[in-house]
Design a protein around this nucleic acid. Sequence first.
RNA 1: GUCCCCUUCGUCUAGCGGUUAGGACAUCGCCCUUUCACGGCGGCAACACGGGUUCGAGUCCCGUAGGGGACGCCA
Length: 450
Amino acid sequence: MTTQKTKVRFAPSPTGRIHVGNVRTAILTWLYARATGGTFLLRLDDTDVERSKEEHAQALMADLRWLGVEWDEFARQRDRMDRYAQAIERLKADGRLYACYETPEELSLKRKTLLQRGLPPIYDRAALALTDAQKSAYEKQGRRPHWRFKLEHKTIAWNDLIRGPVAFEGKDMSDPVLIREDGSPLYHICSVIDDLDYGITHIIRGEDHVSNTAAHIQMFEALGGDIPVCAHLPLISDAEGGKLSKRLGSLSVGELRDDEGLQPMAIINLMARLGTSLPIEAYTHPAPLIESFDFGTFSRSTPKFDPEELVRLNAKILHQTDYSEILPALKDLGLEDVSEEFWLAVRPNLSRLREIRDWWSVAKGPVTPEIAGEDTAFIAAAHDCLPPAPWTEETWGTWIAEVKNRTDRKGKTLFMPLRKALTGMEHGPELNVLLPLIGPDKVSERLQAK
RNA sequence: GUCCCCUUCGUCUAGCGGUUAGGACAUCGCCCUUUCACGGCGGCAACACGGGUUCGAGUCCCGUAGGGGACGCCA
């Protein structure tokens, strides 16, 4: 065995915002690259000029960067058309590509007929029997050919990192179209040529590609290259068990960030471990995920994706995030002068970062103190025994003891009116840490509110 | 329609012929806390169904049901 350096790629089509299903593949591919000390290539598969849009390409890269999924190399297929043409010529010369003249309508009819007879809709290779005379007759009618790759009718087998031994029969598959009628190359051949040229050692993608892989293997062989190791990930499904579609399937990284207000690590943690035998944990850094990454831990069944899990993870991540690490995100929220004390005080009460704004206004105001009619005398008494500045975390204890002495209250009737007067809420961070953060002036002011 | 894959607590899963069926998350209870949250400690909870094979089946075989995937001049 050679000690070949791992090289993997994530190859999305920039046809829309990247969503949960896709980003999982990106994250796992990236983790594998980092786990093996290999290279991660981001390749835009933008051969479909109709659907591929530059704005989607830009948004995709922004989303990946936000997640911290950094790529080492970058390529896009639209820049490589000359190279594809060259490889295609070789396949034609080798007789692996053959010209077909059926129209899309004719092909669709053929498929429908086969289906009705209970047969698999496999292309019948009629074009292979075309004589030169028939071909030129088609050409004279103005028809241009599309080209199919002639699969060898033999067993195609590989050892999948996730699925184990996989085998397909060439005869059970349709010869894939590699070149459109307009002469443009299709995904299959572009992908194979790129994987070859860029030295991809491992192909990691969804299991919706398994039968493609069978065809691709023959293309790798036809082009005389090494066949990368394959890992086909089970697709994730809806919480209801159905296919990941509609609302969830379209749940994009952008929405998770902008609408849901989630931390990138919430998504990384869930996607890295969902469907594996390793526990889903709330790490604040990807390092433990990289260290523990192992295709052997992946199940072959389709796991269910529950967005609520992201929120739970998000909360746990926040509870553990250090002040220095949250600072940039706080700046983005427009909270420049949050102190470390404040962060540590409110951190356990956050499930989304933006909720910190609520606690920030509790500390800085304005707050609408809540003082019930029957509590006015009590609050006034409490105000009278406020300890002198400076205030520390001990102040609350000192104060409340004094209030207890001077009034006949205890338990909930003792502290709850104070909490409501000071914060306007019945819940929140502990008052011993909150009190010095609000400060003597505002505390006094709020206790005297009408 | 044909082919392929999958099915263990609510969820993600361990298990690879003999287990009190293990863990994590969720949930519930207790502790901590003069609130909520955080944290700590415990509890509840599962082998889709039906046939085989075997002394013995969650584990092997066949079937049924359910779910997913593939069968494009999309990727």
